[in-house]
Design a protein around this nucleic acid. Sequence first.
DNA 1: CGGGATGTGCCGGTTGACGATATATGTAGA
DNA 2: TCTACATATATCGTCAACCGGCACATCCCG
Lengths: 122, 122
Amino acid sequence: MQEPTLLLLTALADAPRHGYALIQEIAAISDGRVKMRTGTLYGALDRLLGQGLIEVAAEEVVDGRARRSYALTDAGRGALAAEAGRLRAVATEAERRLTKIRSMLPGKAGSQGRPAAGGGLS
Amino acid sequence: MQEPTLLLLTALADAPRHGYALIQEIAAISDGRVKMRTGTLYGALDRLLGQGLIEVAAEEVVDGRARRSYALTDAGRGALAAEAGRLRAVATEAERRLTKIRSMLPGKAGSQGRPAAGGGLS
DNA sequence: CGGGATGTGCCGGTTGACGATATATGTAGA
DNA sequence: TCTACATATATCGTCAACCGGCACATCCCG
């Protein structure tokens, strides 16, 4: 799962939303850094519908415009929770390693350079 | 940046490593869930070399086998730190939203359903 | 009447991940 | 000895996903 997809599921995590609202919500979540295009959005929406991670929550007409709302399914909630946990673990591990190397003085770091790789993440 | 690439940079974050060691390190980091193939590895390595995020740290011959070690550049460290921070923020936000919806009792959750989306992430 | 916001949808290009495959040496077991 | 496996690097073609761009339609404001 890539970041746009993660952002999309995150934007749906607390309430059902329709496509255009998702674009704005994702911009808000990412502090304006990610401006998802409609090509990405509707492609991902179709894919996630096919995977059963989201479902169509409502199809209404507001001011003459069709508006289709999407919601997370239980599978989608599970997938999002698993993905978020995994990514946060990797991110934490990356930050831990970056911090560690900064705390080591330059020159002859041999013995402490490679701390037992296994089991680091739970 | 996708997850395999993130894992690759993470595996290089505390010490230089050569290709085959990276595959094992990534398996360890991900608790055995990610078994990176050589196709993915060397493709990503070439790409990251081109982007200046990693560099060749050593080229030696051990037991008749060529062994090329890679290390993170300063740019690579910066990119990894930025990426890890961003992903952790999104993951945390996803978990916050998932938790929130679970804490709400069914029926008439209208007023608290949509808390000002902006600024949530710093 | 024009432009911008709202709203959904498709198409083609590019990138990156992946499985398969090739090559080569050292080590352990049948 | 011969075979299989771990170590080690590298290339190829395919496929999924993201992305920019475009098209279409309605509403509001100037």
